[in-house]
């Protein structure tokens, strides 16, 4: 292993515009064994944790990316001005259905939510969280929906298998099933 391999990879992570995939790293670092790359990435990640600085190394959407620690979000908000617009509860629910049940048709989504979802789907398409994957060959040839890579990036997921598993609903716990998304993010929930 080249002694400065972690530093080289760090520079790549810093300059990359999107999550850096293992394949890209292997291509760029021509000749370096994948095991050594992975070891260097682990080393970097552990180093950032130990240092407890402003960012961390996150595995997201099939790649590696440097991200700022959630506890500093309000500072970055100040730097960048207004943040991205929050998703409404209906939009989040619809997105959750698409994420967990894809590929899925609009009729199936509406069946689950019991309401019309046309407007919400359009919003999610515009924000590139979901995409049209094609048409189902049944009468009316309805569109098939699925999530995008951007969805994985925004929700900090490695891949779709990384979605949290759902518990069985045993009983209705008072006020546990439909809380509004908390408006203030708590701090200590960084990885």
């Amino acid at each position: 292993m080249t002694p400065d391999l972690p530093a080289i990879i760090e520079s790549l992570l810093f300059a990359a515009e999107e999550p850096l995939r293992m394949e890209t790293l292997r291509e760029v670092l021509d000749g370096v064994a994948p095991a050594a790359i992975r070891q260097a990435l682990d080393h970097l990640g552990a180093e950032y944790e130990k240092r407890g600085g402003g960012f961390y190394l996150q595995q997201v959407a099939g790649g590696y990316q440097l991200r700022t620690r959630p506890c500093f979000h309000s500072w970055i908000r100040r730097l960048r001005g207004s943040g991205s617009e929050r998703l409404s509860r209906p939009a989040l629910e619809t997105l959750a259905i698409v994420a967990y049940r894809q590929p899925i048709l609009r009729a199936e989504i509406e069946n689950l939510r019991g309401v019309d979802c046309g407007g919400v789907l359009r919003l999610l398409l515009e924000r590139r969280l979901i995409r049209v994957m094609g048409r189902k060959e049944i009468p009316g040839r309805p569109l098939i929906y699925g999530t995008t890579r951007q969805f994985l990036e925004i929700f900090e997921l490695r891949d779709l298998k990384d979605l949290p598993t759902l518990k069985e609903i045993r009983e209705l716990v008072p006020d546990a099933a439909s809380p509004e998304p908390s408006s203030a993010p708590e701090d200590g929930k960084n990885p």
């Binding site: 996150q58 991200r67 700022t68 620690r69 959630p70 979000h73 970055i76 960048r80 943040g83 991205s84 929050r86 998703l87 509860r89 989040l92 629910e93 997105l95 959750a96 259905i97 994420a99 967990y100 990036e153 925004i154 929700f155 900090e156 997921l157 949290p164 759902l166 809380p179 998304p181 908390s182 993010p185 929930k189 960084n190 990885p191």
Partner: peptide, 16 residues
């Protein structure tokens, strides 16, 4: 599921 999604570190909101 929607609630769990909204509690993640969202890019552009909690992390950048």
């Amino acid at each position: 599921a929607a609630e769990m999604l909204s509690q993640r570190n969202l890019l552009g909101e909690h992390t950048f």
